[in-house]
Design a protein around this nucleic acid. Sequence first.
DNA 1: ATAGGGCAAGCAAGATCATTGCGTAAATCT
DNA 2: AGATTTACGCAATGATCTTGCTTGCCCTAT
Lengths: 170, 170
Amino acid sequence: MRRVKLDRIDRRILRDLQDNGRMTNVELANRAGISAPPCLRRVRALEEAGFIRGYHAEVAPEHLGFTVTIYAHVGLTSQAEADLARFEQMVGQWPEVRECHMLMGEADFLLKIVAKDWDAFQRFLTSKLTPAPLVSNVKTALVIRTRKRLPGVPIDEAPEDDDEDEVEEG
Amino acid sequence: MRRVKLDRIDRRILRDLQDNGRMTNVELANRAGISAPPCLRRVRALEEAGFIRGYHAEVAPEHLGFTVTIYAHVGLTSQAEADLARFEQMVGQWPEVRECHMLMGEADFLLKIVAKDWDAFQRFLTSKLTPAPLVSNVKTALVIRTRKRLPGVPIDEAPEDDDEDEVEEG
DNA sequence: ATAGGGCAAGCAAGATCATTGCGTAAATCT
DNA sequence: AGATTTACGCAATGATCTTGCTTGCCCTAT
């Protein structure tokens, strides 16, 4: 069980990579105030330790024909863990569903769904989601516009307390 | 007004970069079946045309101490466009709010909020969001777990109809 | 048909970047 | 204090990025 601590340099690296995932290692190093080799070693260590789950291009949905984004609240008929997992496994196979969050309270989920147009979403809703087993009720909310869309979390230069963040690695 | 069309190669590039934003251009080119130079030119063109909004490292919130994720439905007292914009401008300045989606129907928003712990979220809620001007009512939903978190949109090898996607660029 | 223009691909070369090995300094532990 | 660990920086190698140039293809207008 190795411990990984984050100092100011690590946080700066994470912040910069969260903001620009294709930043070159040399620029990353310059911003962090160290030379390239240790900077790359830190990045690799952060990846290994699970601080960085991956890198993704942020594509414009409307440019690819996806004009409809919906958030759907889904209530289930059962809240047994096996049923919750079965539902998650099912939505995991639907490409229209991009995110699946289990919410506090009764057995319900919040799904983020994208579709090319309203008709395609209706087809998904009526032929896939609503008739699915375990699904009790579905409430959908169409997204009109999105004015803020920041990735991940806010990463300050320094943590609020004096200690450094640390995390256990399996 | 330049037109940009997407062929199978462009879609493959977008799909691969959405999946791995740090894929090298040579591997991207190999997967797409073309050589590196035209592949890089396509990537640049896709960026210029707005198909790619940016690149981001996906960081693990809990590793950085953010153990709480909340979705909040916020209803406003006014749905005049100026007030909606004012609300969006306000949440834009709150680092805890990562996403702000305006929903269909009455003037309400869906916010994605992250916080280091439940207490920090309570402070945000009671000292920032709830007392803010225009805010009528707030309903929060704590995220227990997230089992699906895919970026962007599903990108197939070929579009459903025979035509190629095209988009206007300003 | 055939010549000309417009794309887009591939090759090649130079510049930049990533990556490794090695030596050294600072911090930690005994 | 001495030993150990850790992480930095330098230097060198290999890979990648990037640009200019040339070639081939398709479309269009003679």
